[in-house]
Design a binder for these strands. Structure first.
Lengths: 224, 224
DNA sequence: ACAAAAGTGTTTTTACTACACCCATGT
DNA sequence: ACATGGGTGTAGTAAAAACACTTTTGT
């Protein structure tokens, strides 16, 4: 059998202060020592790919139960200067109410969040992987309910709009956005309000899985 | 290093008699001896993933220069009863004017085309892979110019419509389809006609890469 | 009272759907 | 002359885009 090393790398997206961020770890060892890179690591022999992702996420953020999705497998020669390494890239959507404890893992000296608009130089071909993840997230946003997976359980419509704006990289019209959301009919309005701002309180909403399922039954798959 | 075997499997799509077909090979060895399976094989240590696909395609069909695209990596446990095997699935679009010579490869006793509507039982999880490929092709058809890659250089509008109908699995309105194609403005009409039928000859067209590039410059990315 | 974000409708434009007949050729 | 697939236009409907003011709270 050819000695091909198999790893997973994860683009973890997270909303901080109305801006989309990505989790990076500072590498403690060569190659690319002290360089920022995506969290990830080797796949074990008796471990499914998806389980490797869950394990790595837990090791580096102590967070479980986040949405994960496979992106693409990068298998060119010369990705890793030392070995032939093929990596299966994933993205994860971490809700903004989860408080990840960024722990220095085995081969990670440090970890922190970076705005997708201002990323440092990355190790390996990880810049390509992040770009691919962004593209996927942008597409998913318009076809699926991925946007809600970046928000806490209760959120305001403006928060939701900020997710869309930050991911798509452009401003959206408030009224058209809200009409579209209302038409979708997957949000439950609450009798609670966000009073954290210094202006008129904003109504809080919850995403309703039940209503979303009804849409699918009607054949209206992803009206977003 | 964990002993994980890495393979590629390819869903080769091809139009035959106005119907979408998939290439399958009959396995000569266990596991799944005499069972139909997707063409594919092990990735070599000094070979990029994409090159492995090209090599396998050439070995089994003697065809080169076809459009290939990575689909998904299947990495669950127990896919292969003997080893831990991770496979990177690809799809290929073979134009209907390429005449593949289906050769009995090293581990393929036989090879032939099957209508996607009437597939036999497949080895491993290859049925899942074909289903995934179909889904991808259907999506690509509406957003990209993938449809043209299944046709010969010169084709009639009806041929093009048959591709769409066969991939999407439903009939389309002739006039609406033709208006949409005209609006796209990526076809060059020729002063040649297809006289193979026993009725009025149909005008032949060529896909124009130049015009397609212009669309992209205008920001109209994929109007299909 | 004022600053700051929340909330709310209408019009215009554009894309999508449905639908029926004549045309050019081979046999 | 006739059978066969090629070729063409219009009207109705639904979705998308552009656009400005009033409301409610905290300070």
């Amino acid at each position: 059998m050819p000695a091909i090393h198999l790893t997973v790398d994860i683009v973890v997206f997270h909303m901080l202060e109305d801006e989309l961020h990505v989790l990076l770890v500072k590498r403690g060892y060569d190659p690319f020592k002290n360089c920022w890179a995506l969290p990830g690591g080797f796949v074990e022999e008796n471990e499914a790919l998806d389980d490797a992702v869950i394990r790595e996420l837990k090791e580096e953020t102590s967070v479980t139960d986040v949405y994960c999705e496979q992106l693409y497998t990068f298998g060119g020669l010369g990705r890793d200067p030392r070995h032939r390494t093929v990596t299966v890239a994933y993205m994860a959507l971490m809700p903004s109410d989860k408080q990840p404890q960024l722990e220095a893992g085995t081969d990670a000296a440090d970890a922190s969040w970076f705005k997708v608009k201002k990323l440092p130089k990355l190790a390996f071909d990880h810049a390509d992987i992040v770009a691919y993840g962004m593209e996927r997230l942008q597409n998913k946003l318009e076809w699926t309910t991925a946007g809600f997976k970046l928000l806490p359980k209760r959120f305001t419509l403006t928060q939701l709009q900020r997710v869309y704006e930050s991911v798509l990289g452009r401003e959206l019209d408030k009224r058209n956005f809200r009409r579209k959301v209302e038409l979708l009919d997957v949000l439950d309005p609450l009798e609670k309000f966000d009073r954290s701002g210094s202006s008129r309180p904003a109504r809080l909403y919850e995403f309703s899985e039940k209503r979303f399922e009804k849409l699918k039954d009607k054949g209206i798959l992803f009206p977003f």
